[in-house]
Design a protein around this nucleic acid. Structure first.
Lengths: 206, 206
DNA sequence: CTACCGATTAACCACATGGTTAATCCGATG
DNA sequence: CATCGGATTAACCATGTGGTTAATCGGTAG
């Protein structure tokens, strides 16, 4: 929520530099340059590099999680809900493909601080609770009907996020490990968009 | 392949510090302290922080990839091969749970340099070729027999690695996003060890 | 015109950090 | 016991970095 144009340009530049270098390796000078602004302005608007990183992270996380959680807490039938969640998340990922890697890496170097940030920005526990309750009820119904094996919402969610986020976050690694070029990456991405929901349901079927 | 005890202690200390802080945020002094050694010794054995990071990364990657690739190129039947690969990789991950996150983050900040490192250490392309050829033949046989839908080895491999590595690499993130505590993490890990191979085969079944 | 005020900058500072150097330690070798 | 050489260290250095400050710019109100 920047209030001035310069402030927004700084945030944007910081986002780019942080995402491609990582916060620790990012230089404030580079951010200033990319924003076309004097380095002192960063400290004028945001008080320190750390605060700036907080602002960037919060905006990024705020653009990534709520939509997904919202979709997962909606009242669509299970299959459609999963399919919608995949679509929503793939859109978000397509818009900022390096975000998950960034979040992952930052969360790794200091889990406590950043999870605290997230908590102050949104009611994580409540959202999670709603999502889980809604999902678990639907899963249990499917289990009852013999279409799924007994399963927790957590398991389903972790599988979903793994298949959804990892190929983006680890694209460089997969490039080396699996020889994944851009074309193959796109092919896999469109497969996920079309098939991932059903893939998961089949995998968890009895 | 350190030749002296001190050298090995330094490598070990560097590994710990790099893994928990990330290379950019790691301080050579902290590494020296953790190795119980003067800072100048790091430069005596390894010429610079960057070279030290290379050594650490190579050792780590060398402990993570070859086993997996070896298993995947073996002549076990498909299902058993996948199951064995899961086991091998889960063992490796259990031994050093933070490694994938480390590799991921380092690969992200400078993909070219580190993939070059990997290439000079092992014949990545050849290994990958063997793995893919072997896997693809087995997949095609299963497709022929109507037990799998048409599928590339790449797709299978990416799905495998996603489900296998992401829960480790993103454990902090999942702790926040899915409320995953240690007990739940262990439960999911043992599920993967038992069920992941079959899960994938069901998911890719027609 | 000028007095004012937030936005912006050039110049500067303290300091942490990676890296170097010259000296010292210590076991082996003669 | 002397000395030789690799291992190890204390002290030091150059530099890049985040952060500060005092001055300036530029629009606006009186």
């Amino acid at each position: 929520m920047p209030t001035t144009d310069t402030e927004a340009r700084i945030l944007e530049a910081a986002h780019h530099v942080f995402v491609r270098r990582g916060v620790a390796a990012a230089r404030t000078q580079e951010i200033a340059d990319e924003a076309g602004v004097n380095k002192a302005l960063l400290h004028y608007y945001y008080r320190s590099k750390a605060k700036l990183a907080d602002a960037v992270f919060l905006r990024a996380a705020g653009a990534m999680f709520p939509q997904l959680l919202g979709t997962l807490a909606s009242d669509l039938p299970l299959r459609e809900k999963l399919h919608a969640a995949v679509g929503v998340e793939m859109d978000a990922l397509a818009a900022s493909p390096y975000l998950p890697g960034y979040i992952l890496c930052e969360l790794r170097s200091d889990p406590a601080r950043l999870s605290a940030l997230l908590h102050e920005a949104m009611p994580v526990e409540r959202l999670r609770g709603e999502v889980f309750a809604s999902l678990q009820a639907q899963i249990d119904a499917e289990v009852e009907a013999g279409r799924l094996r007994p399963l927790t919402a957590q398991e389903l969610l972790v599988a979903l996020m793994s298949m959804l986020i990892f190929p983006h976050a680890a694209s460089h690694m997969l490039e080396v490990a699996a020889g994944l070029n851009e074309a193959a990456r796109d092919r896999l991405a469109s497969w996920r968009r079309r098939e991932l929901a059903d893939f998961l349901l089949r995998g968890f079927a009895p």
